[in-house]
Design a protein around this nucleic acid. Sequence first.
DNA 1: ACCTGAACACCGTTCAAGT
DNA 2: ACCTGAACACCGTTCAAGT
Lengths: 203, 203
Amino acid sequence: MRINETKGSDHYHHGDLRRALIGRAINILESEGEAALTMRRIARDVGVSQAAPYSHFKSKKDLLTAVCVEGTVWFGDSMKARAAGKQGLEYLAGLAVGHVQFALEHPALFRLMSTRPISESLDAQGNLPEIFNEGYQLMLSGLAAAPLKHFGSAERQLDAPIAWAQIYGISNLLIEGRITPETFGFDNVEEFVNALLGHFLHL
Amino acid sequence: MRINETKGSDHYHHGDLRRALIGRAINILESEGEAALTMRRIARDVGVSQAAPYSHFKSKKDLLTAVCVEGTVWFGDSMKARAAGKQGLEYLAGLAVGHVQFALEHPALFRLMSTRPISESLDAQGNLPEIFNEGYQLMLSGLAAAPLKHFGSAERQLDAPIAWAQIYGISNLLIEGRITPETFGFDNVEEFVNALLGHFLHL
DNA sequence: ACCTGAACACCGTTCAAGT
DNA sequence: ACCTGAACACCGTTCAAGT
């Protein structure tokens, strides 16, 4: 967990309530899913009145955006961890496995992150928080070192959306239970994802 | 619209309230999005008491499942319409374009359909309504006539999850605004999707 | 500046009662 | 069998008031 619920002081009340709310929101998401994630519940759990969160977030949507920012950092770290120490093709494959595995380990958080229209996550200046592109940027760096195979007329420029859509699609299909590795004769996610990547990479 | 709101009689009250509720639910989803889709609102719009829907659906989840079944039929029809009259590779590409275009034209409905865990859509006997696999079955039929390119060790059996994940991923990335055809120099969705498919198909 | 208490207009769902 | 009215336990959000 990357969020400290307390920090120096022992009460939220003059500590960092903002971060405490985000942290608790992620905990609820992880343990009980999005349906359980209500403003009142978060406030209650953190020991504060139901109106208190509105001193830090102007709406629930705002809090959810902050949760997504946190989640995205975590997500990027997961991808990097899986790819660490690898080179070229294996680096790219590691990122992909990390992506899928993060989604499976944190389905509610990943779903929240991936179904949030970017228009609802714009900051005061109207730009998307740069962190939201972390996963995509990582993929781009992986593709730079190990491009997809390309066939005939296909343009190298399309590698990025193809790879992104593929990994994103697999993550979602696995999360919702529409696909399982077992259906295709694989024992676990890693083998399955690696086999799928075999279609794209020079593995 | 494939749902008749009235049917013979001029009152819901002794007509088909069940279908009227499903139809109105889809209308609300299309015009105002999932946030506006509440049991009470649907009942109100249809001119019935707030408790009435519970004579036909045991919970909101149940109604949503029925909405997904309707949506899936519609979705399948859209794919077939785009592929109609085409053969082999073009048939498969037509299905793909139909898939993506349905998602873009009915984002809220598609999102509902694609984020619903299959475990929440099982019928009384515990099986998934067969219609839920319509999109996948169509893709399989397309792949049978026009398999993906395969490379080295890649197995033909993986064509299905690869194609499915790809189209599903593109649909979602486009819906949430994370990708646009313009970013990659295409004027519209059809050109963009066709170019992406160039990586997979012998186009 | 940050938080509380109380209120407003909503929810999903249940259940006795009506037809 | 199908529907209503009223109720219960929740929501998100606002706002005056407290510290």
